[in-house]
Write a protein that binds this DNA or RNA. Structure first.
Lengths: 187, 187
DNA sequence: GTAGCTAACTAATGTCATTATTAACTGCGT
DNA sequence: ACGCAGTTAATAATGACATTAGTTAGCTAC
C-alpha cells in the first residue's frame, strides 16, 4: 500500500468531493482525504498545492459539473420554457451534491482563469433561458443575477435550516417559479 | 493586565463580531478573540462554552440586530410600500456587517430557542411587508421565503465575487426590486 | 542494469481548540 | 481589619490539523 499508491489530481478531487457531500465542505481536510485514499497527508503535496488549492480544484469541478447538468436539462425538450427546467436542475444538483455545490459558489481568492471561464459558461446557459423573455442585453444580465440570487439563496437557507416553519418546500419552489416568471415578464 | 481583565460575554461577542466583519466569519478563532482582548484563550472558557458556542452567540446577536435595524427602517415613514425600504435595509446591513450577517444566517446545530425566536421575529417583519399585497397566509409565507432567498443569494453571490461581470450592482438591486414587486402582485 | 525522475514516506514546526489544574483577585460577612 | 467562598485568569498538557524539509524507494528510459 505504501509506495506508488497511484494518486493523481483527479482521484484526490473526487475523494474531496465525497467528503464534502457527506460531511460538508468545511469538513474537507487533507488528513481526511489522505485517510480515505490510504495515504499520509504530506503525500498529497506531490499532486496539489495544499488545502486551498484543493478546494479551488473542487470549485472548478463543481462549476463544470453544474454547467453540464443544467445545460443538458435545458436542451432536453423543454423548448419554449426552459426556465422551469433550469431552475429544477439547479436545485436538484444542489441537493444531490451539497458539498460540491457549496465549493462551486466560492470564487477563488486569486482570480482563477479556469473557474472564471467555467462560471461564465454557466451564466451563458441562464442567459439563453432568460433571452426567451426578450429583454435588452443589460436587463437580461441583471435578470440572470436576480435568478441566480433567488436560486442560491433558496438552496442556502434551506440547507442551513433557515426556513424554520413546517411549510412545504415544493410549494415554495412553485411560488418562486411563478413569481420570477411573472416578474421577468413585467420588466 | 493579567488577573481580572474584565471579560464578559458581551465584550467577547463584540470582539468576535469585529473579527468576523473585518476578516470573515471563518477567521473567528478563540486565539484571535483572546489576543484582541489581551487575554489567553483558555480564559474565554469562563464566559463561553467554546468556539461553537461563541459563533452561536454571534448568530443571535446578528439576527437581533438585523431585526432591530430592518424593523426600524420599515416603520420610518415608508408606509404604503415598505418592501423597498426593507430590501434596502437588509442589503445595507449585510454590507455594513458582513461577518455578523454571515453568522446570523447559520442556524445553530442543536435547536437554539433564542436564535429561533429572534429569527421568527425577523420573518414577522417581512411578513408584515408582504401582507400589503394581500395574499392568503400560506402564499404570504412562501413569498417571504422567496424574498429572503433572493436577498440572501444576492448578498452571498456579490460577496463571493460571483457576479463576475462589471455590471452596476445598484441597477441589479433595482431590477430585483421591480421583478419581485411585479412577481408578488401577480401571484 | 543503472541514472534520474517521481511519488510516497518520516520527522518536525506551528497553529488551533480544548481540558484540567492552579493561583490570584473580589466582595461579603464577621 | 480579616478571612472565606466564589470567580476569573493563568499555565500546562493533549490532540487535530496544515505545511515544509529531507529521505527513500519504485518506475522508466536508455
Amino acid at each position: 500500500m505504501s509506495p506508488r499508491a497511484g494518486l493523481d489530481v483527479s482521484s484526490i478531487t473526487i475523494a474531496a468531493a465525497d467528503i464534502a457531500n457527506e460531511e460538508g465542505l468545511e469538513q474537507v481536510t487533507l488528513a481526511k482525504v489522505a485517510r480515505k485514499l490510504g495515504v499520509r497527508s504530506p503525500s498529497l503535496y506531490n499532486h496539489i498545492g495544499g488545502l486551498p488549492d484543493l478546494i479551488e480544484k473542487l470549485a472548478v469541478y463543481g462549476v463544470e459539473k453544474m454547467h453540464t447538468v443544467i445545460k443538458y436539462e435545458m436542451n432536453s425538450g423543454h423548448g419554449e420554457n426552459g426556465l422551469k427546467a433550469v431552475m429544477t436542475a439547479y436545485l436538484t444538483f444542489a441537493r444531490a451534491e451539497p458539498g460540491v455545490y457549496e465549493a462551486a459558489q466560492k470564487a477563488p481568492e486569486q482570480h482563477n482563469e479556469v473557474w472564471q471561464a467555467a462560471s461564465n459558461q454557466l451564466v451563458q446557459v441562464l442567459l439563453a433561458v432568460v433571452a426567451a423573455f426578450d429583454l435588452e442585453e443589460k436587463a437580461a444580465l441583471h435578470t440572470v443575477r436576480v435568478l441566480r440570487s433567488a436560486l442560491h439563496g433558496f438552496v442556502m437557507l434551506d440547507r442551513a435550516g433557515g426556513f424554520g416553519l413546517p411549510l412545504d418546500l415544493q410549494e415554495t419552489e412553485e411560488v418562486m417559479y411563478k413569481l420570477i416568471t411573472a416578474g421577468i415578464a413585467k420588466l
